[in-house]
């Protein structure tokens, strides 16, 4: 239980996890469901109940596709993707916690890959 972190995450995300009514539409809509350790509705509940340390350790924060389907379809304006990003940002702000290192990139490139792939990956996965 970490109430301070809950507030920090809610503040960074700009949404209120308490507004969630546990309908599960986010999880029904999520295209990355199979890859996610914690599913969007669980994520909201874990933020609300202060289980942020578990989330910070989870690989799941990097599997959100940022497709905004849960934001669009959430009937309560809880917008799980914003909470997921807030936790990811918290994790990445710790020194040495980058999910993607620049030196790893060349090995993953192919000749057709657009620049956009690299800029957005760096923006998403590294401080």
């Amino acid at each position: 239980m970490n109430r301070d972190l809950t507030q920090t995450v809610a503040r960074i995300a700009g949404v209120n996890p308490r507004a969630c009514m546990r309908c599960g539409k986010c999880t029904g809509a999520c295209p990355a469901y199979d890859e996610m350790e914690y599913h969007p509705h669980q994520f909201v509940s874990m933020v609300e109940t202060g289980r942020i340390d578990e989330l910070l350790r989870s690989k799941g924060i990097y599997t959100c596709l940022s497709c905004f389907a849960c934001i669009e379809r959430c009937p309560r304006q809880v917008e799980p993707a914003r909470l997921i990003e807030a936790v990811r940002v918290l994790a990445e702000r710790k020194q040495g916690a980058d999910h993607l290192r620049p030196q790893d990139i060349p090995a993953r490139l192919d000749p057709d890959m657009p620049q956009q792939a690299i800029t957005s990956a760096l923006r998403k996965y590294r401080r």
């Binding site: 295209p31 990355a32 990097y62 599997t63 596709l65 940022s66 497709c67 389907a69 993607l100 990139i105 993953r108 890959m113 792939a117 690299i118 957005s120 990956a121 998403k124």
Partner: peptide, 12 residues
């Protein structure tokens, strides 16, 4: 209007 997963092309 569903996601193609493009943001994760660099992810293994």
């Amino acid at each position: 209007n569903e996601c193609c997963g493009g943001y994760t092309v660099l992810e293994p």
